[in-house]
Design a binder for these strands. Structure first.
Lengths: 193, 193
DNA sequence: TCGAGACCAGACAGATCTGTCTGGTCGTGT
DNA sequence: ACACGACCAGACAGATCTGTCTGGTCTCGA
């Protein structure tokens, strides 16, 4: 199937580690979870972890990177349902309503990670990248919708998005993201004059 | 001056510890900062720390509790400037604009702590308490202003407040909280029909 | 058949963390 | 004068954490 796999893409090994890291880092926090708990849950030898990733730092970075890609995919896939740019703009919130409501959502992983890692770390860079992607997504959709101040509107929508994530982290309110959507709708309507 | 001081209120000892904890916990994170760094910065013996607070857990709780009281004070004091309930409602954001802009603001300490501590910990309870206080503050002010759905408006204002805090944590944008104020004004206006 | 690569099991080193304990200094009120 | 309480200095124990290293097993392609 593969003569030389630069990235052992499909099956298990490094995948199991990323899954375990996802569950534990996201569930309990990056700094409170040790390497030993991760390899135990993954059913992987410690040596294998340090073969795949060279350090915990890099495992963290990879975990966040995977989260970033999955959110990207979830949103871009989900947005195909919506026809007009205006619907897409609010569609981002609709998609998030589902995500927040589903299983064990505990707030935006990038916000949580940003509170734990050092500002100059590679992990923080991934958080910034993912946040930047959200911002440009909102900005681009706003432009396509023919909004006057696309950047301003995007900033405000991001504000609502983050606020809903915080509510999901601190209370376990599901209503917050719905409120965010309401306000977002109001804003979009207003910016389209 | 004092025959028996249950709480050695004014000067230094425990105060220095709380100051150091404030600087380090807030500046670098709760889990990444160890006891040794705190007593070093405070210039206090380790034994003294464990006399005052019995554990790191309790020091964290006290740090958050102090933060809660200072925010409470800052906002209630600041709101005296404003005359009508409607002005007070937006005044909360004005006060936060100043706070965010000032020195080294790195996002809401309670959001950051919530991302690090265990959900059933005493520290998390303080975070919840402080958040509850903000929510009832908004709700009460909204009621006094004669708003129709005070609870709904309060929820949305809290959303904006949190969103601005996240922006302060992740970017170092000062513009976000100003945007939050703009949206808040729009909301208040609308709810006052 | 054999050799390479992926993986496992776990001991080990060294750092760091929380918390305890001993023993000492100093100021103050009685 | 003295006892007591607040504080200091730092050794120490025990746990835990990251990261390394040795050596063994299994599979698969040449």
């Amino acid at each position: 199937m593969s003569t030389k796999a630069a990235t052992p893409e499909k099956r298990s090994a490094r995948e199991r580690l990323l899954t375990a890291a996802e569950e534990l880092f996201y569930g309990e926090g990056i700094n409170t979870v040790g390497i030993d708990r991760i390899i135990e849950r993954a059913g992987v030898a410690k040596a294998s972890l340090y073969d795949c990733f060279g350090s915990k730092e890099e495992l963290i970075r990879s975990y966040l990177s995977a989260r970033h890609e999955s959110r990207q995919k979830r949103i871009t896939e989900g947005l195909k349902r919506f026809a007009t740019p205006r619907e897409k703009l609010l569609g981002v919130f609709d998609i998030q309503v589902e995500t927040f409501r589903s299983n064990n959502f505990r707030g935006c992983p990038f916000v949580r990670a940003s509170a734990e890692v050092k500002p100059e770390s590679a992990a923080k860079a991934v958080c910034d990248e993912s946040r930047g992607w959200m911002r440009t997504l909102f900005t681009d959709l706003a432009k396509e919708a023919g909004v006057r101040d696309a950047v301003t509107l995007a900033e405000k929508l991001l504000l609502l998005y983050d606020g809903a994530a915080v509510a999901a982290l601190m209370d376990k309110s599901k209503a917050a993201v719905a409120s965010a959507r309401e306000v977002a709708e109001m804003l979009v309507e207003k910016h389209l004059s």
